[in-house]
Design a binder for these strands. Structure first.
Lengths: 231, 231
DNA sequence: CGGCCCATTGATACCTATCAAGGACCGTGG
DNA sequence: CCACGGTCCTTGATAGGTATCAATGGGCCG
């Protein structure tokens, strides 16, 4: 029986699905999938951080969300034929590779897993909803606080908090492209949060000092993370 | 056999699923679901327009997306127990009601339908991705052009174009809350688009004069709508 | 050492929010 | 009938938040 609705551990993931066809390792900055691609594969993150983004024709980039261990990569492409966003590694990344044309088969033979895939899609949707609220209605300071608190929470929920400290692996350019701000203003905004003793910025990572304070600045009412399925 | 992957007609929908438990009719402005609710129901739109939104504690509102015939309402709540957004009717609305606790059953007995639910979730995700790009990286004028072109496209794709003309049923307050702009600036921005002969604004609706022109202003590269499943 | 990426900071310009006011329309009640 | 309040749309003036421009320092690597 496949493990499901259990606490997450990276090592377990490697044995989860009979649909696995291989493993893939990528370096930071590596492009995993590109916009408009018609990849034959669907991935699950085994370890590392990645992000997905879209760009306008003139190059403006918007980061849509981040992927951590347990997240699916490329589901949209698998279901609809063509991916409308690109995916890039933020840290060294280990992926589990599935063949997307066997997705139908998965639904037929493992309805529980099919349900779990939908669960993950609904969870992604919920995150995007909150990001939209951020971009549309939060100020720059609130947005930055939300993003850092959000990423901290995500890291924590997959057990990345070694001794309570999590280093979120980002550059300020990533933050800017996530928040829809210029890089200069992003810098000034992060500095304000640092001066409030809510976070500390390192070379290419962010250390959270006060998650509750960040959530408060962001006015973020975080939904409790329910038991999650394991794909 | 249930109809699937076919062209959409409203009347067909009424017979689609054995999981249907009733029908619901709502008036414009009516609240269908509210933030934090734990509704026992899942809906499909049979006719009319609705939208879903989130609010910050101080009242700032962000509209997340719009629902048209064929769209699901409340999937997040069905899968994760609690809905993190509210839903409101924009026009007179007819909904088909399902019982959410039978969703597992649906996946078990009708894997094809389960697949279709996931397809719809992935499609919603794709729309949210584009909205995020809009809020993060498009100017006010581009955003407004994108929104109108987007809603026009959606209406068209479910056959609302009577004689080529579609009236999108919105107030400028809705537009403002979708684009993350103030209502005053929204008004001035829509006026610019009207002066460019791209649209005409009526009392509480928007008429599209030049969909291609709007897409061009927005720099929106619209993905082709594939054959969609019918729930 | 030079080149490059990343973070930082000040000055200025521009886009959007806020404030204020008014017109059009529509239902309601005097 | 008309006055009244409400919602929606419109417009001008001013304030404020964010973008852009310019320049610097630190770290890393060829």
């Amino acid at each position: 029986m496949m493990p499901r609705f259990r606490d997450f551990t990276t090592t377990e993931l490697r044995f989860v699905s009979s649909f696995k066809t291989g493993e893939l390792v990528a370096e930071p900055g590596a492009s995993i999938l590109s916009q408009g691609s018609n990849s034959a594969h669907l991935f699950t993150v085994l370890s590392g951080w990645a992000f997905r983004y879209k760009t306008l024709s003139d190059g403006r980039r918007q980061i849509l969300n981040y992927m951590l261990p347990g997240d699916l990569i490329g589901l949209q492409g698998s279901l609809m034929g063509e991916l409308e966003h690109a995916v890039e590694a933020l840290t060294p990344l280990v992926l589990c590779v599935f063949q997307r044309d066997r997705l139908h088969e998965l639904y037929r033979n493992h309805p529980g897993l099919g349900y779990d895939v939908t669960w993950l899609a609904a969870r992604e949707e919920r995150m995007l909803d909150e990001h939209l609220l951020s971009l549309g209605r939060r100020s720059a300071l609130e947005r930055a606080a939300y993003l850092v608190a959000f990423l901290y929470r995500r890291g924590e929920s997959v057990g990345l908090g070694k001794g309570g400290r999590i280093e979120v692996p980002l550059t300020q350019q990533h933050v800017a492209d996530t928040l829809g701000l210029s890089i200069v203003h992003t810098n000034k905004t992060l500095r304000k949060l640092a001066n409030l003793n809510l976070l500390r910025w390192h070379d290419r990572s962010c250390e959270v000092l006060d998650a509750e304070g960040l959530r408060s600045v962001a006015k973020w009412e975080e939904p409790e993370e329910r038991r999650r399925p394991l794909i």
